[in-house]
């Protein structure tokens, strides 16, 4: 395994809950509660989970849009966890973000040229034939007409707007792109266009992606490795094939079996794992294993001892006391990052 481009160690974000005149802290929402993973150069890591599991917070922590309360973020070996804004700025060239909503993430008063050209301006980068030429080249790269340089976002459809967002991300040739639900606001036929575009760009520009999404089928399609989050923790992390074909964590199993399958003939035979209830509030998560309140395999130990994220097969980490599909003797940790 080559050197990780991004390395996250025990990352935490606890949002304080305050009360009263003195804004005394009475509790904390543990949105992200000690997660660790690596992203290797050139790969796509998918981060999936239901709403409130902390996946978006993770993305924002890595881009340093919000300040972590604990843990470490290493980018190319440099600790950027608490780096000052000024020192972060040159690094921002290398880490860029694609946002979910192509309507609210583009300034309606700016032209496409200004939006996509902003990174050049902010970073003070001069290009050989001027910014306009550079911007037009990028527009062409993402499948937009370069002549639309002077148009405003409202003149474009949802899919085209998402392409503008992607163009802005690519402007400075970043190394890592964090895509937070890049296709979930788009129509089905447009989703596929954008997914293909992201894949093509990865090949052409040698990009590394961290894709945050809730749609398990989209994540399987674009990711090399997938991490599953539940209430601020990673419960399972594995390469695509083993995660989807032999998931070990009961939650992963339940998630996969809940996805509606577009096959009307098979609906009678399908056996579903039905989870009871909803995801508990991250303000007051269940103790020890956070999934035990909804898990059908839960036993006494799950309520008292928190299962650590352990490597049970090559490159397959699981945090569960009673994993499924697990090899009988756990392999020694060879590739733990």
């Amino acid at each position: 395994m080559s050197e990780p481009l991004l390395s996250v160690e025990g990352l935490e974000k606890h949002f304080p809950v305050t009360k009263g005149l003195l804004q005394r802290q009475v509790a904390a929402v543990k949105a992200v509660d000690g997660i660790s993973f690596d992203v290797v150069k050139g790969e796509t890591l998918g981060l999936v989970g239901e709403s409130g599991c902390g996946k978006t917070t993770t993305g924002r922590l890595i881009t340093r849009l919000i300040e972590p309360t604990g843990g470490k973020i290493l980018f190319e070996g440099n600790d950027i966890t608490h780096m000052s804004q000024g020192r972060m700025r040159p690094l921002r060239r290398d880490v860029q973000m694609i946002f979910q909503d192509p309507y609210s993430s583009l300034n309606p008063r700016h032209t496409v040229g200004a939006i996509v050209g902003a990174p050049f301006r902010i970073q003070g980068i001069k290009t050989e034939h001027g910014t306009k030429k550079a911007v037009q080249d990028i527009l062409e790269l993402v499948g937009l007409n370069p002549e639309h340089y002077n148009r405003y976002p409202h003149e474009f459809s949802g899919g085209q707007r998402q392409r503008i967002g992607i163009a802005r991300t690519l402007a400075l040739k970043p190394k890592l792109i964090i895509a937070d639900e890049p296709v979930s606001a788009l129509d089905v036929s447009i989703q596929a266009q954008v997914v293909n575009l992201l894949e093509d760009l990865q090949g052409e520009l040698d990009l590394t992606y961290l894709v945050i999404a809730h749609d398990l089928s989209v994540v399987r399609h674009i990711s090399d490795r997938v991490a599953v989050m539940y209430l601020g923790k990673i419960v399972e992390l594995a390469d695509r094939k083993s995660l989807y074909e032999s998931p070990m964590h009961p939650y992963t199993n339940a998630l996969l079996s809940a996805v509606p399958i577009p096959d009307p003939k098979g609906r009678a035979q399908r056996e579903r794992i039905r989870l009871q209830g909803d995801v508990p509030s991250p303000l007051n998560p269940p103790p020890a294993c956070r999934f035990h309140t909804r898990c059908w395999k839960a036993q006494e130990i799950c309520k008292t001892v928190e299962p650590p994220l352990e490597t049970l097969a090559t490159g397959h980490q699981v945090a569960c006391h009673f994993p499924e599909n697990a090899p009988t003797t756990p392999e020694p940790a060879v590739t733990t990052a």
Binding site: G159, A192, V195, E199, S217, H221, Y244, V259, I261, P262
Partner: peptide
């Protein structure tokens, strides 16, 4: 549409335009 009930296809086959 990527599908979980089938093997992963190399490429999605989108509809062009919007």
């Amino acid at each position: 549409m990527p599908r979980l009930d089938r093997d992963r296809t190399e490429r999605l086959l989108p509809i062009k335009g919007s």
